[in-house]
Design a protein around this nucleic acid. Structure first.
Lengths: 102, 102
DNA sequence: CGAAGACATAGGTACTTAGCTATATAGCTC
DNA sequence: GAGCTATATAGCTAAGTACCTATGTCTTCG
Protein backbone atom coordinates (compact mmCIF):
# COMPACT_ATOMS: atom_id res chain seq x y z
CA UNK A 1 0.00 0.00 0.00
CA UNK A 2 1.43 3.34 -1.06
CA UNK A 3 2.25 5.44 1.94
CA UNK A 4 1.32 8.79 0.41
CA UNK A 5 -2.33 7.79 0.16
CA UNK A 6 -3.41 8.90 3.66
CA UNK A 7 -2.12 12.43 3.05
CA UNK A 8 -3.71 12.49 -0.39
CA UNK A 9 -7.08 11.39 0.95
CA UNK A 10 -6.82 13.80 3.87
CA UNK A 11 -6.26 16.63 1.39
CA UNK A 12 -9.37 15.56 -0.48
CA UNK A 13 -11.51 15.13 2.63
CA UNK A 14 -12.58 18.75 2.65
CA UNK A 15 -15.51 20.28 0.75
CA UNK A 16 -13.60 23.52 0.37
CA UNK A 17 -10.55 21.88 -1.15
CA UNK A 18 -12.68 19.75 -3.49
CA UNK A 19 -14.43 22.94 -4.52
CA UNK A 20 -11.11 24.58 -5.32
CA UNK A 21 -10.04 21.62 -7.43
CA UNK A 22 -13.33 21.76 -9.29
CA UNK A 23 -13.03 25.51 -9.96
CA UNK A 24 -9.47 25.04 -11.18
CA UNK A 25 -10.61 22.54 -13.79
CA UNK A 26 -11.94 25.52 -15.75
CA UNK A 27 -10.63 28.73 -14.20
CA UNK A 28 -12.02 31.00 -16.92
CA UNK A 29 -15.52 29.82 -16.10
CA UNK A 30 -15.14 30.82 -12.47
CA UNK A 31 -12.73 33.74 -12.16
CA UNK A 32 -12.28 37.14 -13.79
CA UNK A 33 -9.17 37.79 -15.89
CA UNK A 34 -5.95 38.63 -14.06
CA UNK A 35 -3.51 41.38 -14.79
CA UNK A 36 -0.15 39.68 -14.48
CA UNK A 37 -0.88 36.04 -15.15
CA UNK A 38 -3.09 33.89 -17.31
CA UNK A 39 -5.80 32.01 -15.44
CA UNK A 40 -5.10 28.79 -17.33
CA UNK A 41 -1.38 28.94 -18.03
CA UNK A 42 -0.28 30.43 -14.72
CA UNK A 43 -3.11 29.63 -12.33
CA UNK A 44 -5.45 31.54 -10.08
CA UNK A 45 -4.22 33.94 -7.42
CA UNK A 46 -4.92 33.40 -3.74
CA UNK A 47 -7.14 36.43 -3.19
CA UNK A 48 -9.58 35.31 -5.88
CA UNK A 49 -9.80 31.87 -4.34
CA UNK A 50 -10.19 33.28 -0.82
CA UNK A 51 -12.99 35.58 -1.95
CA UNK A 52 -14.88 32.86 -3.77
CA UNK A 53 -14.44 30.44 -0.87
CA UNK A 54 -15.68 33.17 1.48
CA UNK A 55 -12.80 32.67 3.87
CA UNK A 56 -9.94 34.94 4.89
CA UNK A 57 -6.76 34.89 2.88
CA UNK A 58 -4.63 32.97 5.43
CA UNK A 59 -7.27 30.24 5.53
CA UNK A 60 -7.21 29.96 1.75
CA UNK A 61 -3.42 29.84 1.78
CA UNK A 62 -3.53 26.98 4.27
CA UNK A 63 -5.94 24.99 2.08
CA UNK A 64 -3.83 25.57 -1.00
CA UNK A 65 -0.70 24.44 0.80
CA UNK A 66 -2.43 21.21 1.78
CA UNK A 67 -3.39 20.61 -1.85
CA UNK A 68 0.15 21.42 -2.95
CA UNK A 69 1.74 19.06 -0.43
CA UNK A 70 -0.54 16.30 -1.69
CA UNK A 71 0.66 16.97 -5.22
CA UNK A 72 -2.72 18.08 -6.53
CA UNK A 73 -1.78 21.67 -7.40
CA UNK A 74 1.38 23.61 -8.10
CA UNK A 75 2.13 27.19 -7.15
CA UNK A 76 4.00 29.79 -9.12
CA UNK A 77 5.16 33.05 -7.68
CA UNK A 78 5.01 35.99 -10.09
CA UNK A 79 5.89 39.29 -8.51
CA UNK A 80 3.56 39.82 -5.62
CA UNK A 81 1.13 37.13 -6.73
CA UNK A 82 1.07 33.42 -6.13
CA UNK A 83 -0.88 31.50 -8.73
CA UNK A 84 -2.19 28.03 -8.09
CA UNK A 85 -3.20 25.56 -10.79
CA UNK A 86 -4.03 21.88 -10.96
CA UNK A 87 -1.17 19.47 -11.62
CA UNK A 88 -3.06 17.44 -14.21
CA UNK A 89 -0.28 14.93 -14.87
CA UNK A 90 0.11 14.21 -11.19
CA UNK A 91 -3.65 14.01 -10.69
CA UNK A 92 -3.86 11.39 -13.44
CA UNK A 93 -1.10 9.40 -11.74
CA UNK A 94 -2.84 9.69 -8.38
CA UNK A 95 -6.10 8.44 -9.86
CA UNK A 96 -4.24 5.44 -11.23
CA UNK A 97 -2.80 4.74 -7.78
CA UNK A 98 -6.25 4.89 -6.29
CA UNK A 99 -7.67 2.57 -8.93
CA UNK A 100 -4.87 0.10 -8.36
CA UNK A 101 -4.47 0.15 -4.60
CA UNK A 102 -7.98 0.66 -3.32
CA UNK B 1 -19.35 17.66 -7.42
CA UNK B 2 -20.80 14.67 -5.61
CA UNK B 3 -21.46 15.51 -2.00
CA UNK B 4 -20.54 12.11 -0.59
CA UNK B 5 -16.91 12.53 -1.62
CA UNK B 6 -15.70 14.34 1.51
CA UNK B 7 -16.97 11.54 3.77
CA UNK B 8 -15.48 8.94 1.45
CA UNK B 9 -12.09 10.60 1.41
CA UNK B 10 -12.21 11.14 5.17
CA UNK B 11 -12.82 7.42 5.61
CA UNK B 12 -9.78 6.69 3.47
CA UNK B 13 -7.55 9.27 5.15
CA UNK B 14 -6.42 6.81 7.81
CA UNK B 15 -3.54 4.34 7.56
CA UNK B 16 -5.40 1.91 9.78
CA UNK B 17 -8.51 1.92 7.64
CA UNK B 18 -6.52 1.61 4.42
CA UNK B 19 -4.76 -1.33 6.02
CA UNK B 20 -8.07 -2.98 6.82
CA UNK B 21 -9.26 -2.53 3.24
CA UNK B 22 -6.04 -4.06 1.99
CA UNK B 23 -6.32 -7.07 4.31
CA UNK B 24 -9.91 -7.59 3.27
CA UNK B 25 -8.92 -7.88 -0.37
CA UNK B 26 -7.62 -11.36 0.47
CA UNK B 27 -8.81 -12.34 3.93
CA UNK B 28 -7.48 -15.90 3.75
CA UNK B 29 -3.98 -14.58 3.30
CA UNK B 30 -4.22 -12.54 6.49
CA UNK B 31 -6.58 -14.24 8.94
CA UNK B 32 -7.05 -17.73 10.37
CA UNK B 33 -10.22 -19.67 9.55
CA UNK B 34 -13.34 -18.81 11.53
CA UNK B 35 -15.79 -21.17 13.14
CA UNK B 36 -19.16 -19.72 12.20
CA UNK B 37 -18.50 -17.78 9.04
CA UNK B 38 -16.40 -17.99 5.92
CA UNK B 39 -13.64 -15.38 5.69
CA UNK B 40 -14.45 -14.61 2.07
CA UNK B 41 -18.19 -15.19 1.84
CA UNK B 42 -19.17 -13.70 5.19
CA UNK B 43 -16.27 -11.46 6.09
CA UNK B 44 -13.81 -11.09 8.96
CA UNK B 45 -14.90 -10.73 12.56
CA UNK B 46 -14.08 -7.66 14.61
CA UNK B 47 -11.78 -9.32 17.14
CA UNK B 48 -9.47 -10.60 14.41
CA UNK B 49 -9.24 -7.14 12.91
CA UNK B 50 -8.72 -5.50 16.29
CA UNK B 51 -5.92 -7.91 17.15
CA UNK B 52 -4.13 -7.47 13.85
CA UNK B 53 -4.50 -3.69 14.02
CA UNK B 54 -3.16 -3.80 17.59
CA UNK B 55 -5.96 -1.65 18.91
CA UNK B 56 -8.75 -2.38 21.38
CA UNK B 57 -11.99 -3.80 20.10
CA UNK B 58 -14.05 -0.59 20.46
CA UNK B 59 -11.47 1.29 18.43
CA UNK B 60 -11.66 -1.33 15.68
CA UNK B 61 -15.45 -1.18 15.73
CA UNK B 62 -15.30 2.59 15.29
CA UNK B 63 -12.99 2.30 12.27
CA UNK B 64 -15.19 -0.34 10.68
CA UNK B 65 -18.27 1.80 11.18
CA UNK B 66 -16.56 4.65 9.39
CA UNK B 67 -15.74 2.36 6.47
CA UNK B 68 -19.31 1.06 6.45
CA UNK B 69 -20.84 4.54 6.47
CA UNK B 70 -18.64 5.43 3.49
CA UNK B 71 -19.96 2.38 1.64
CA UNK B 72 -16.61 0.63 1.48
CA UNK B 73 -17.52 -2.41 3.57
CA UNK B 74 -20.67 -4.19 4.63
CA UNK B 75 -21.34 -5.88 7.94
CA UNK B 76 -23.23 -9.05 8.58
CA UNK B 77 -24.31 -10.15 11.99
CA UNK B 78 -24.21 -13.93 12.53
CA UNK B 79 -24.99 -14.96 16.06
CA UNK B 80 -22.59 -13.20 18.34
CA UNK B 81 -20.22 -12.25 15.55
CA UNK B 82 -20.20 -9.32 13.18
CA UNK B 83 -18.35 -10.00 9.97
CA UNK B 84 -17.03 -7.20 7.80
CA UNK B 85 -16.17 -7.55 4.12
CA UNK B 86 -15.40 -5.22 1.26
CA UNK B 87 -18.32 -4.05 -0.86
CA UNK B 88 -16.55 -4.62 -4.18
CA UNK B 89 -19.38 -3.39 -6.37
CA UNK B 90 -19.65 -0.17 -4.42
CA UNK B 91 -15.87 0.27 -4.36
CA UNK B 92 -15.80 0.02 -8.15
CA UNK B 93 -18.53 2.63 -8.38
CA UNK B 94 -16.68 4.91 -5.98
CA UNK B 95 -13.49 4.60 -8.01
CA UNK B 96 -15.44 5.64 -11.09
CA UNK B 97 -16.78 8.68 -9.23
CA UNK B 98 -13.27 9.64 -8.23
CA UNK B 99 -11.97 9.22 -11.77
CA UNK B 100 -14.77 11.34 -13.12
CA UNK B 101 -15.05 14.11 -10.54
CA UNK B 102 -11.48 14.66 -9.44
C1' DC C 1 11.01 56.77 -0.76
C1' DG C 2 6.49 55.80 1.28
C1' DA C 3 2.03 53.72 1.06
C1' DA C 4 -0.67 50.02 -0.32
C1' DG C 5 -1.37 45.32 -1.92
C1' DA C 6 -0.46 40.15 -1.96
C1' DC C 7 0.96 36.56 0.37
C1' DA C 8 2.99 33.78 4.31
C1' DT C 9 3.59 32.87 9.10
C1' DA C 10 2.44 32.93 14.11
C1' DG C 11 -0.62 32.26 17.56
C1' DG C 12 -5.16 31.55 19.60
C1' DT C 13 -9.85 29.14 19.93
C1' DA C 14 -13.45 25.87 18.75
C1' DC C 15 -14.40 21.57 16.80
C1' DT C 16 -13.32 16.90 15.31
C1' DT C 17 -10.92 12.50 15.60
C1' DA C 18 -8.51 8.48 17.60
C1' DG C 19 -7.47 6.14 21.17
C1' DC C 20 -8.63 4.29 25.79
C1' DT C 21 -11.65 2.13 29.90
C1' DA C 22 -16.03 0.89 31.59
C1' DT C 23 -20.28 -0.90 30.75
C1' DA C 24 -24.44 -2.55 28.32
C1' DT C 25 -26.51 -6.07 25.26
C1' DA C 26 -27.06 -10.24 23.10
C1' DG C 27 -25.91 -14.95 21.91
C1' DC C 28 -23.45 -19.35 23.18
C1' DT C 29 -22.55 -23.24 26.16
C1' DC C 30 -22.85 -25.93 29.99
C1' DG D 1 -30.13 -20.03 34.39
C1' DA D 2 -25.03 -18.81 34.95
C1' DG D 3 -21.21 -17.58 33.03
C1' DC D 4 -18.51 -16.61 29.09
C1' DT D 5 -17.71 -14.38 24.53
C1' DA D 6 -18.45 -10.92 20.80
C1' DT D 7 -19.84 -6.59 19.82
C1' DA D 8 -21.72 -1.95 20.56
C1' DT D 9 -22.20 2.28 23.12
C1' DA D 10 -20.87 5.97 26.44
C1' DG D 11 -17.74 8.94 28.12
C1' DC D 12 -13.12 10.58 28.73
C1' DT D 13 -8.53 12.66 27.07
C1' DA D 14 -4.98 13.87 23.83
C1' DA D 15 -3.99 15.29 19.43
C1' DG D 16 -5.12 17.22 15.06
C1' DT D 17 -7.76 20.57 11.98
C1' DA D 18 -10.11 24.82 10.51
C1' DC D 19 -11.04 29.04 11.18
C1' DC D 20 -9.83 33.68 12.81
C1' DT D 21 -6.71 38.16 13.88
C1' DA D 22 -2.30 40.19 13.95
C1' DT D 23 1.87 40.78 11.87
C1' DG D 24 5.98 40.21 8.83
C1' DT D 25 8.00 40.30 4.12
C1' DC D 26 8.22 41.49 -0.38
C1' DT D 27 6.52 43.94 -4.52
C1' DT D 28 4.44 47.47 -6.96
C1' DC D 29 3.10 52.17 -7.80
C1' DG D 30 2.71 57.02 -7.20
Amino acid sequence: MSDFLPALFAALASPRRLQVLEWLRDPRAHFPPQRDGDLVDDGVCVVFLARKLRVRQPTATAHLQVLARAGLVTSKRVGQWTFYKRDEARIRALKRSISRDL
